[in-house]
């Protein structure tokens, strides 16, 4: 991993991965949508509302996955001062926040017809709402300081501490009484879901993951250009002294 801490090497690798991630995302989401809307059956209990699952469940998975990536990247940026790790954490936050928002909104739209309510303050829903606020807090904290390095540090600490919420979300359906159903896929006795529904679910999940990779690369490139612009402006403002050349 340390090899990729170098921004130059990152840019080269990212340039190669970016088009493949975009293609994989389009392919999986296209196929996933076809299976989700046309060729999968309605549920015997939930009817057509089960189709909300194909956008809801992968969004919720990505909400947690992005948080773990953000926390791990924040930790390595705190410990080893990897610049690329810091960029990765920063680029992941808005994507994770978007997936968390979608998990909440689509869950609400699924809850109303099936549970009879848009929202309940139970363990699963509340812990996911907290996850959303952790993302927002991370983004806000970054911009709360005049010195971007201090903001990045403060936000990284929040990200690392907040990772405790992820296992709470995962196991909330087992630890507490909740309206939310327990896991259907990650069970010891295998997935409790028919392949006609599992196919679109996994395709959408893979599509979301590829979309995340593509978005992370795009946002990291934007962030990297911004830090370079800041360095050049700083050098111009502070006179002739050449700043250390950044690849």
């Amino acid at each position: 991993m340390h090899r990729f801490a170098n921004p130059t090497r990152f840019v080269r690798l990212a340039g190669r991965v970016q088009p493949w991630a975009a293609a994989l995302a389009l392919l999986c989401l296209g196929a996933g949508l076809y299976f989700a809307l046309f060729s999968s059956p309605p549920d015997y209990q939930q009817g057509e509302t089960v189709r909300i699952m194909y956008v809801h469940v992968p969004a919720a998975w990505m909400a947690m996955f992005c948080y773990v990536v953000m926390a791990a990247a924040s930790a390595s940026s705190l410990i080893w001062r990897h610049r690329v790790a810091d960029l990765a954490a920063k680029a992941t936050a808005p994507v994770g926040a978007a997936f968390t928002l979608l998990a909440l909104v689509t869950g609400s739209l699924w809850g109303k017809p099936m549970w009879g309510t848009w929202w309940v303050w139970d363990a699963r829903l509340t812990s996911v709402l907290i996850l959303f606020f952790l993302y927002l807090g991370y983004i806000a904290l970054q911009n709360a300081f005049d010195d971007p390095a201090r903001g990045a540090r403060a936000a990284a600490i929040l990200a690392v501490v907040g990772v405790i919420n992820v296992p709470i979300i995962k196991f909330s359906v087992d630890w507490w009484n909740t309206l939310h159903q327990p896991a259907s896929l990650t069970r010891l006795d295998g997935p409790a879901i028919h392949s006609s529904m599992l196919t679109p679910l996994l395709l959408m999940a893979l599509g979301y993951t590829a979309l995340y990779v593509w978005l992370a690369i795009i946002r990291m490139r934007a962030e990297l250009a911004e830090t370079k612009i800041r360095a050049i402006r700083y050098r111009q403002a502070s006179g002739t002294a050449p700043a250390p050349q950044e690849s």
């Binding site: 009817g47 057509e48 509302t49 956008v55 969004a59 994507v95 979608l102």
Partner: peptide
């Protein structure tokens, strides 16, 4: 199956947020 008011907004919100962010 009578659930259009829930299914389509879920897909619409997903498309809107992901396309907007992209």
């Amino acid at each position: 199956g009578g659930y259009a008011a829930f299914v389509w907004p879920a897909y619409g919100a997903t498309a809107l947020v992901l396309a907007g962010l992209s």
